[in-house]
Design a protein around this nucleic acid. Structure first.
Lengths: 205, 205
DNA sequence: GTCTATATAACGATAGAC
DNA sequence: GTCTATCGTTATATAGAC
């Protein structure tokens, strides 16, 4: 299967590349050129720019979140979840570096897409996470932490570098290789950093 | 001082509000309405949309980073820096919640602004931070960590929730009050979380 | 300085031939 | 299905009166 892609598929793939690389305000003309066709053919397949964009957004937004929610809702231990999510997510983001900025822009400036976004993502099972944390706390192997803070901390540490990438290039003097190396280091660094943060037995005035 | 603002100031302030709230693609017409004047008067003061936008961007970008760099480069202890930065930054971001998205968008999709952005921000003194970390490690009060990872972790944990805010509303069911409370909790939570992560004496095979 | 009216350009969208 | 040619709308920008 997947022999010659249909024209519709070629358009969709071109649109994905263009919207992700140039940003959500990219023009139909750019998509047409990328797909090697004329602008009017875009309208033949997708009746309007909005429909084409929405198709791309749905697809991409649904790739950003659910994979990690699946891991989070699984039966792995907290430690395994952290290790698995960090490894899997950093890997995924390295292959899709523009995805977070793209989705973040759209959600921030077009809140009407929040509804469809909500449907595209399963919700994390906060109750389960909360219980898991609680039993670790009871065992004395973990500090108490609200599950929301747990989740946001983990996501922040994984995703933020990709959104702030140009800032890191400016402030830390990264080039593309340095950034790749930085993320590679992070795969080792983050799990122990994160799990360490939750270790019991400290006090910080 | 600061009696009646000049027309130019009123335009600039209106532009700030409009660009930050509506996003970088907001129209001149919106700015004109917000400032209570006509569109052509905008051009009288700022020759083009680009100049007006650039003025706003410079101003706003220069507010996002330098304040924390100042703290970072100061003579405070590591612990004091973390506590001060978290408290100051979360406070600042709560008062300017749209700033990170605005700057992130612009830097990601208009790399030509990176140059001017670099000039607007002082660089963090990584060497100093590195030495500070090293001496804590020697004292046995801290785990070793590359200064870049230190910095990015700290920024991620502070800034990311504001960029991902609509996602948090969708995934965690926040409303505005819940989000504000979440950030308020975070002021207590983050410093101990972060400093705990760097405490020595763990291993996380 | 500030307005009204208009020019200019860009982009999305449609019509119609092949 | 795919193209060329063109329309309609919107946004920036300018001209010129007051």
């Amino acid at each position: 299967m997947a022999g010659d892609p249909t024209t519709e598929e070629r358009i969709f793939d071109a649109a994905r590349r263009v919207f992700l690389q140039q940003g959500p305000q990219a023009r139909m003309q750019d998509v047409a050129v990328e797909a090697g066709i004329t602008q009017s053919l875009l309208h033949y397949y997708y009746r309007s720019r909005d429909r084409l964009f929405e198709a791309v957004f749905r697809k991409e937004a649904s790739r950003l979140i659910p994979r990690e929610i699946g891991i989070l809702n699984s039966d792995l231990s907290i430690q395994e979840k952290v290790e698995t999510i960090v490894d899997d997510y950093l890997d995924f983001l390295q292959k899709n570096p523009h995805l977070p900025s793209f989705v973040a822009y759209e959600l921030n400036y077009h809140p009407e897409r929040l509804q469809e976004f909500m449907r595209s993502v399963g919700k994390p099972d906060l109750q389960k996470l909360s219980q898991q944390i609680e039993s670790c706390v009871d065992e004395g192997t973990m500090m108490p932490i609200p599950p929301e803070q747990f989740l946001v901390n983990l996501l922040s540490l994984c995703v933020f570098p990709f959104i702030a990438r140009p800032m890191l290039h400016a402030v830390l003097g990264f080039d593309d290789d340095a950034f790749a190396g930085f993320i590679e280091d992070r795969k080792d660094h983050l799990p122990s950093f994160f799990l360490n943060a939750l270790r019991p037995g400290a006090d910080s005035t």
